[in-house]
Design a protein around this nucleic acid. Structure first.
Lengths: 154, 154
DNA sequence: TATTGTTATACTCTATAACTATA
DNA sequence: TATAGTTATAGAGTATAACAATA
């Protein structure tokens, strides 16, 4: 009946990168489920949050901040603008750029989303004691800060 | 000259999920760079490692272990088989299934890859003291273990 | 000359549905 | 009836290259 000798992880067992990957999958899964009714992905949520925190920023600034190519950002903003969540306003000072702002609807929705995301974080990390959560955040930051030092040749 | 007041992270600032996302991006970046000469992605590396550690496993078993649909796995295995790294062998006991094994070339390559991955892990986590690395691994496992308890309705 | 936003295009990764052969 | 592997297909999400407007 039960054919589950459960596979050995082998070399993967000891890799922190592998553990991080699994955690990321679990996290994304729960995030996606929480946001499904709003059709909001982590990237879209990131864009909304950054526009909210930095009203008037340009598309290039936003693209860099969320690690997207500027061409990729166009479609994302088209989507958010079509939903009347975000507004592109041509800048007066540099006519090449657009200033990005949330609409009132955008702010309203983001408020709801933030509460959802807080619940999501609580589900995923709430079981950990506060000091371990802080430790985890600190360690993850340290990892992000690590830039590739050496370029490797075959 | 320098137009970098650097954006505010706003709400994202306090999110562990966001930190994890950034760490994942940095990690993937370095992994990709290290593996580029071999055309090996994290998923392919995972598949090779699991086949190595569980010779004779079926495609379904592998698919579940690396969180892919069985249809998605087909192309991945086609690729690895075309490169003579993996072999599909029809099972004698259940003729619907294939037994997966590394070829000698596959084993040879995996050996090289493992060394690369160890270097990669050292680059990304080597600066952390050993006890913090262990703590990080432990916390990430705890996060993965967290299953979504409640299903959320709008 | 360089940068910004845009478009056209293509590539990668993934899943769903339907087929076949076995169980 | 159900499962394993396959195929056809489509949908996200991403990047590269070229273009017009502006700096």
């Amino acid at each position: 009946m039960n054919k589950k000798p459960s596979l050995s992880l082998g070399f993967l067992e000891g890799l922190i990168g592998f553990r991080l990957r699994l955690a990321q999958i679990a996290l994304f899964d729960d995030f996606e489920r929480a946001m499904r009714p709003f059709d909001i992905t982590p990237t879209r949520f990131g864009a909304l949050s950054l526009i909210d925190a930095n009203p008037g920023l340009s598309q290039m600034q936003l693209a860099k901040a969320i690690r997207l190519d500027r061409s990729t950002l166009v479609a994302l903003l088209d989507h958010l603008e079509k939903r009347s969540l975000v507004q592109r306003r041509p800048s007066a000072t540099d006519k090449r750029t657009n200033e990005l702002r949330l609409t009132p609807e955008g702010r309203l929705l983001l408020g709801k989303l933030k509460r959802r995301v807080q619940e999501h974080e609580k589900r995923m990390f709430g079981k950990l004691p506060a000091d371990e959560r802080a430790q985890l955040a600190r360690l993850l930051e340290a990892v992000s800060a690590m830039k590739t030092k050496q370029v490797i040749e075959i």
